[in-house]
C-alpha cells in the first residue's frame, strides 16, 4: 500500500508524475518483476497498470507492508 510519494528535491517532476500515474496514499501496489541485473528496474503494478520504474524512482514512494500478498 502506498503511503506517500516524496519529492527528491523541490518541484521534483518525477515525483509529480508518479502521483499523476496513481501513486497516491492508500493505493495498493505490488512488485511484479525485477530487472535481470541487480534487480533494476522494478515492474510495479498499481491498479491494473504496470510501470517499469528504476529503483531511484521507486525510492520516492514510501509503502507500508500489508499482509504478504
Amino acid at each position: 500500500m502506498v503511503q506517500d510519494v516524496e519529492d527528491a528535491h523541490p518541484a521534483d517532476p518525477i515525483a509529480q508524475r508518479l502521483r499523476e500515474l496513481g501513486f497516491v496514499s492508500g493505493e495498493p501496489v505490488r512488485i511484479v518483476a525485477r530487472g535481470p541485473l541487480g534487480g533494476d528496474p522494478l515492474l510495479v503494478q498499481i491498479g491494473s497498470t504496470r510501470f517499469a520504474l528504476r529503483r531511484s524512482e521507486a525510492a520516492r514512494v514510501t509503502v507500508s507492508q500489508e499482509a504478504t500478498a
Binding site: 510501470f51 531511484s56 524512482e57
Partner: peptide
C-alpha cells in the same frame, strides 16, 4: 539531473 524511465508496460 535524474533521467526518468517511468514506462508503462
Amino acid at each position: 539531473s535524474e533521467h526518468a524511465l517511468i514506462m508503462e508496460l
